[in-house]
Design a protein around this nucleic acid. Structure first.
Lengths: 231, 231, 231, 231
DNA sequence: GATGAATGAGATTTCATTCAT
DNA sequence: AATGAATGAAATCTCATTCAT
């Protein structure tokens, strides 16, 4: 969509790299706080104590800067998950690790950046959308791998598409975080991670068809009786 | 301190109401597509084939217009759910109705408006935030009621906070929709709703502790054997 | 400057005249309160309980309306002064009448309209300026006549231009009123009129040259002695 | 509630100060010519040959700019008067200096700015009003001091409030200037200043009661005889 | 390489005026 | 004759981006 090759020469060298890191760090803060449109290059430069022009010496513009901020953030998450994942342990433990790690990473600047991705990713026109799709894929890859292996092993159900299972794990996480931010409440990450896996684990297990039918029958009967009792 | 002059009155009457509906319809489209900041009153007016001034004849400003768009959207969802909910039937059927209805309503312009709510609700400053909190509450009320009744009846588990169960239902829905938009794929609403409830239902059921332990034991043993086999 | 002949047919008849009077009355209020630019046709129409369009049925536009408001106001003042002036009595009494009447008329809506005249009269371009010069002349005519007669009679000094005497009478009045408004204080019109004439009367009298010289000599001597005493 | 982002800083330095002076100089011209509302930032920028944005680089908005223009103007007047006042000389000479200086300063752009102060100072709403009151006080202070000292010395009358004397001096000046502008005539400042003091000086002197009565008696008799002669 | 003042495109908003009903 | 919705011109103000120093 956009001209990616730059007519501008970006400085190189150790000092330049430090500059870039600084700009990215502060930009992430500001974008997370204010969103894309409300963020101004002035604000970023002021927080860094540098001039506005300098930002444009290292980045082609606000959009590119924002794209880099999001890429770096994804890279961090992906790196942390890939590196720490306890591959030797049980699927449930790995899942708990995944959930806990995500909750932790998101809670710092996550919702701000998450909202950023949501609103900017959607934008029509020459936007950031193109940047996100591959990132999204890489970002969910560890979870998809984990689920795929577990399904192949028969540990979890195979009667539903994996993408649905993935949504059933990532969705609640985002929802909880969003809720926490909206209500401005603290979240006990350890407990929430444990609870969430406790909740979802039964959903992931293979369906024991006969047991399920029996259970459903009992459930229906019980409910019918109660309704009859109430009526 | 205050303005001494009265503001111009907003037209009333059948034709005016039609106008308002038109403006709201188109504004919803544009806000959903572009988000709050990128939406311009110029764009809205152009799509309607009217002049910019006319928009301001009916709404006091962009913020008010956006607030109305979101309120109306919530009202639609809430109304549809409250009206159609099959109260007489089983919890699972009611849940399926809830999920199906939401997927359907969201899919039209949902994610755009959802992202709008997410990014604008978070915004610092005198914003739309105040509009959202009560709407969010009304919006989740039917689901919370359903879950609360089911828990009191012993139909679903009571070892976890209801808010977690709620997140486990709403979260995946949003995630699925978001994914569908990002990948620009069609969603089979009926099937997805059925699948999602099939997936989540076991998660909601009361934990049959002994059975659970046994199942866990079998699971662990099986996994260990498989790992031994693979290694 | 402007096209005075109207392409629009202004309604005639008793009812129409009442309309015009109503519009002028309310417009005067609003212009006096808010000044020309801050006054809106909407506000005028709303205070009258009529539609905006109706104002334009009777007046070509805001400028014409404002010009008429000012003309009418001047006419009132001029009429009141001309009618009530006690021609038979002494110059001093006539002057007191003039001052008292002006203070009274100005205090009601005067400063507002006065500021209006000041700021709009000055405006370059096709403005109201042309309307004001003849009005200003008519407005000061009674005072100029009074002063001219008194000068011819030898009652007041003839060593200074009449225009200066006129300024010495009208100027303080406006200043007092302006001050009263700025500080939001009540003005005792009777007392202020008496005081002002008491103050200015000696200034208007013919200079008794010898007495004046003597008085100046005494004054200088006294001041010199006092300065010497203070030093 | 508040804005989270810092505003852009206003440039400082020698060149910036020159810019500010230029903008203020031209703004003073335009505000004086057109008044507050009719003045546009576009016009100011065009006369300076700079872009509109630049004006806003140095001033936060039109209101602030206008406030600065008026403050500076007052400061100039006050400074010139305070600095040049011949304190050692007689009250009459000091008064002449005061009048002459004011006429000179006002004649340049005075009436325009005066009308500006008059119409904007009156304005309801969060306006410039607050800026004016202290300025007005400082502006009249030298005159009030002069009058107070002279009254304490017995040089001028003490039977009327000082504020009335002040109005009797400032009022005519403004009136003369206003008249001069309206008729677009030149004013001989030296002569006008001398004439005005010559006119007003008798008004300020203490009333010699007996002489006054006698003079009044003669005046009345003379007038009566003349009227009789004319009739 | 850093600066930061200048720019200019564009956004929201107001309101006198018109004209079909 | 009255209405009042629609208009569109204009005004203030913001900010990403450039470029001379």
């Amino acid at each position: 969509m956009e001209d990616v090759t730059s007519p501008r020469r970006v400085p190189a060298g150790a000092k330049a790299e430090q500059r870039i890191r600084d700009i990215l760090r502060v930009s992430r803060e500001v974008f997370a706080e204010l969103g894309y449109e409300r963020t101004t290059t002035t604000e970023i430069a002021q927080r860094l104590g540098i001039s506005e022009g300098t930002v444009f010496t290292y980045f082609h513009g606000k959009r590119e800067l924002c794209a880099r901020v999001i890429e770096d953030w994804y890279d961090e998450i992906i790196g942390t998950v890939e590196q720490g994942m306890p591959h030797g342990q049980s699927t449930k433990v790995q899942l708990e690790f995944y959930v806990r790690t995500h909750l932790r990473l998101f809670l710092i600047q996550g919702t701000g950046l998450c909202a950023l991705v949501l609103s900017e990713g959607r934008a029509k026109g020459p936007g950031l959308g193109d940047v996100f799709v591959p990132l999204q894929r890489r970002y969910t890859a560890p979870l998809m791998d984990l689920l795929a292996r577990a399904r192949d092993n028969g540990e979890i159900r195979d009667d539903l598409p994996l993408s649905l299972l993935r949504s059933a794990i990532l969705g609640p996480m985002e929802h909880i975080l969003w809720d926490a931010i909206a209500r401005q409440r603290q979240v006990d990450i350890e407990k929430t991670a444990r609870d969430m896996v406790a909740l979802l684990w039964p959903a992931l297990l293979p369906v024991d068809v006969e047991a399920e039918k029996l259970r459903a029958f009992y459930g229906e009967v019980g409910a019918a009786l109660r309704r009859a009792g109430n009526g």
